[in-house]
Structures are given as structure tokens and as C-alpha cells.
Design a protein around this nucleic acid. Structure first.
Lengths: 249, 249
DNA sequence: TCAAAAGTGTTCACTTTACACCCATGT
DNA sequence: ACATGGGTGTAAAGTGAACACTTTTGA
């Protein structure tokens, strides 16, 4: 059975299970090599890249749907997920399934709930689902070079802007960094999300004064220079600090 | 025909026109007598109050749906509307139509897109639609005394929090106040949204320095005291100032 | 020995906060 | 007379940005 036929068969089965006209599109961010990247899929019959989105079951919390979709389509679980915007223009998806017959229910107009997810890519054991050919992390800096389906580029950009707005109020660092990290990794993360450079000395003092870090008795080995100290978050203080906002970055 | 039967008839007609499982719930804020109020409806067969929500047509932008619903259900148009959150718990509406037969499509599970709207109540010529008995402004301070349907209390609270977050970046004052207003009315509005008192002198200077106000040659008459000066917004400067954020209130 | 990392000090400019005091004016 | 509004002064405290210097240490 060729991919397109297989897709059609699956499509029929799904029709009654899901809420029509509604999907959820999670933008999964990962931080790595001091750069942000996003998880994207490529379908078997199309060269455009897609967010790992999916439909919501008729009897399923919306948040649960976003979680499930990520698990099924990318093999990712235990992820920090938050809704950030709705994409509801009536013609937003009309060209994506243009090769198919009008009767295909996917051709219906869809409203999409945008979620952003924060994930430490070290933990990822990516899978490729039955509709996809690839499931890969794409660096933000490379996004301009690839083709994205529908309004998915807009969704990613809006997710990034939301991240920037919420950096002082949501556990963004906590969810993107590994358990143990160095101060310059943390600083780099802030710099990427905010899109500007920060002064090292001032950053050091600010973070220190917030009291949200615990310095560990270990160093990261490897470079031709002094081994940087490793830190982890002090979860309790971190949560408390977030309530009032970490800072005015 | 009794109200309930009438409702059922309308319901049947609507079934094919709208996207199932999806609704939009606008929280319309008005400012008046130095207090915030919210527009609510009461249905004919229920004592609980409701947001003036409605369904989205199959071929209609989401934003347009919110606008239309407000027009149809409350007679309000030309309103500043913005999406702020999604309410998607699977059981959020399950008790509202409990008196009806299982076959009623409204009993289906609904996901609701929350919009907030800002409106100067002076302009309002409220109407009452065919499903409602009342359409009224309710002061926030009185909300605790009335019964609200489903999760609509939660939606209102979340809308208010969003307003607070966005007060420096969105034209909130502009849309809530009448054309001409006094400085203390403006200050009172800020105080209500922020939920805290502000120092008059400092407020005066801050607002003045932003250059977003135009002082008019008129005063508001009436009190047993000096007549306060009237102001209006300088639209151009206001917009410019919003881009960088008005302030850190 | 060199490069990156850790840690600290200091200065300047600016903002925020809190309070206080003045005068104006409509009823 | 008096309550409210308009307008300004000011001192204390805090914040942010910039920069520079020191010490540490792994390869």
C-alpha cells in the first residue's frame, strides 16, 4: 500500500474519534550547543516541514491531547506544556491537502491551539510516526532555509515571542536545561531567548542574588581552560521567585 | 411556544451552520463610576448568569465570530477584542444542559476560546437576544453574589489577570474610557485593573511625561469642589508609547 | 602559558517611592 | 469653608549598564 493510500485508510478510522475542525500544534523547544532548536516533522508525501500536531479526542482534556500527540508523533513524554495562542483564520490550512479529494475531512477548516513545550533534548528518544518520514530537531537559525507548511512558521515565531514575555514568570530555564549546567550555559539560554547579549558580571550577580541556584561540588571537564562549576536549580526557591517575577530582562 | 421548545427549534437550525464542540466566550469589560463591570446574560430557563458566548461558523474567522456573537447577543459592535486563553477541560460544560435530552448537541463537550473586550458602556445600547431574559452590566464587586454558569467565573478572573499583564502594552485605557476623561478617572482605572493604589503626584508626572494625553479646554462640572480638567488621548503618541510599553506598573 | 571561568568592586545615570507642600476653585 | 484637583520639590532607595581587575585552573 502506498503512503498516500495508507494515510487515507488511517484518516477514515480517525474521523469519529476526534473533534472535527480542531487541532493542537505543539512547538517543542530544546536547548543545545548554546542554541535553541524546534522539533519538526516531514510527512511522507510532502517536502514541507510540520509541527508535530494532531487532533483532540472527543472525550479528552485539551492539555491531555497536546501531551498525547507529542508522545504519539515524536516519542516525547513528561514535557512542560503551555497553551499560548489560537490560530483561527478560516483559510489557514486550505492549501495543505490540495492534492487530495474534497471529501477528505482533513481538508475542512481547522482551528489550531498553539502550545509551547520545553524539553531537554538529551532526554529525547525520538520516534517517527506512521505519517512521517522524518522527526528532527531544527535549529532556529536554520528555520529560514526550510519550507514550513501552512502558518506553522508564524506559530513558531509567536511561541518564541511568548517565551520571551514569560521568561521571568515561568520555569523556562528549569525545563530547558539539563539537571546540571554551568552559569554560562544559563546565560547563553537567556541571551538566545531574549535575543540580546548580557553582561557576564551583572548576570552572575543577579542570578546569584535570586537564590535560585545550588552550586554543586562538580565541574564540567573538557575544555582547554578552567573547568566551570556545575549548578542545579533550587526548586523551592525557584518557584517562590517566579511568583514575583525573576527580573526585568 | 414555551421558551424551552423555542430553544430546541433554534438549536436544530444551528446544528449544521456551526463548528461543533467549539465556542467563543467574550468577557466584555466596561468602566463606570470608577469601577469595572462585566457584561452578562441570564437565560430564560436558568437563573445562572452567562458570558455572551456563542458558536463559530464553519466558514468564519475566529475573531469575526467573537465580534458577531457580541453583536447578536448583546447589540454591541465596534469593540476592541483580543483572544487571551483557551478553556478545554473535557467536563467543563457537562452540567449546564442537564435538563435536556442527551441528543441535544449543546450537551456535547465544548472547547471555548476566551476573548476579552473593552467597551465604553456609554456607547452601549444593549439588546436582549432570543435565548436570554436579561443582558446587564455587573460590577466586579458584585460578582461574588451571583451564580455563574460552568467555568465562566474562572474565565472572567483569567481575563482580568490578562488585562493586568497587558496594561502597559495594549490600548486598554483608550478603549475603556470615554472620549474625554479626567486624570483621576484614568488613575482610578489603573488602580482597579492593577488592584492597588497609586500615588497621585507620581501618577500625574508619569502620565504627563509619556506625552499620551492632550489637555482639553473643558472641565467636568458638578462636584462641590474645583472642576477637574478634561483630557483625551493623543492617538499617535499613545500608539508609539505602547510599542515600548507604557510603564512598569 | 594561555584561554576561559569565577568572583568582586565601583561608578554613573536614572527611576521609583513616599511624602509634603503649595495654590486654585465650585458649591 | 472645604473638599477636591493641579502642580511641584525633594530625599532615600533601588536598578541597570559598563567596565575593569583579580584569581583559578585544565590542557
Amino acid at each position: 500500500m502506498d503512503p498516500q493510500q495508507q494515510f487515507l485508510k488511517k484518516s477514515e478510522e480517525a474521523k469519529d474519534l476526534f473533534i472535527p475542525h480542531l487541532s493542537t500544534d505543539p512547538v517543542v523547544f530544546g536547548f543545545d550547543q548554546s542554541e535553541l532548536k524546534v522539533l519538526l516533522l516531514q510527512m511522507t508525501y510532502r517536502k514541507q516541514w510540520l509541527l508535530p500536531g494532531g487532533y483532540v479526542k472527543k472525550d479528552e482534556d485539551l492539555d491531555a491531547a497536546a501531551e498525547r500527540v507529542l508522545r504519539e508523533r515524536a516519542g516525547i513524554s513528561d514535557v512542560y506544556l503551555e497553551e499560548f495562542a489560537v490560530f483561527g483564520k478560516k483559510n489557514r490550512s486550505e492549501f495543505y491537502f490540495e492534492d487530495f479529494d474534497e471529501s477528505l475531512w482533513h481538508k475542512q477548516r481547522f482551528i489550531s491551539i498553539g502550545y509551547y513545550a520545553l524539553y531537554n533534548p538529551d532526554n529525547a528518544n525520538l520516534i517517527i510516526d506512521e505519517f512521517s518520514e522524518k522527526c528532527e530537531w531544527i535549529y532556529l537559525s536554520q528555520l529560514s532555509e526550510i519550507e514550513l507548511a501552512m502558518d506553522h512558521r508564524e506559530i513558531i515565531e509567536k511561541a518564541l515571542l511568548t517565551l520571551r514575555e514569560r521568561i521571568s514568570y515561568k520555569p523556562i530555564g528549569y525545563n530547558l536545561l539539563p539537571e546540571k549546567f554551568t552559569l554560562s550555559e544559563l546565560q547563553k539560554l537567556y541571551e538566545t531567548i531574549l535575543g540580546k547579549e548580557l553582561n557576564r558580571g551583572n548576570f552572575y550577580r543577579k542570578i546569584k542574588n535570586l537564590g535560585i541556584l545550588r552550586k554543586l561540588d562538580e565541574q564540567r571537564r573538557g575544555g582547554a581552560h578552567k573547568s566551570p562549576d556545575l549548578y542545579s536549580f533550587d526548586e523551592e526557591n525557584y518557584k517562590k521567585a517566579l511568583e514575583n517575577g525573576l527580573n526585568n530582562w
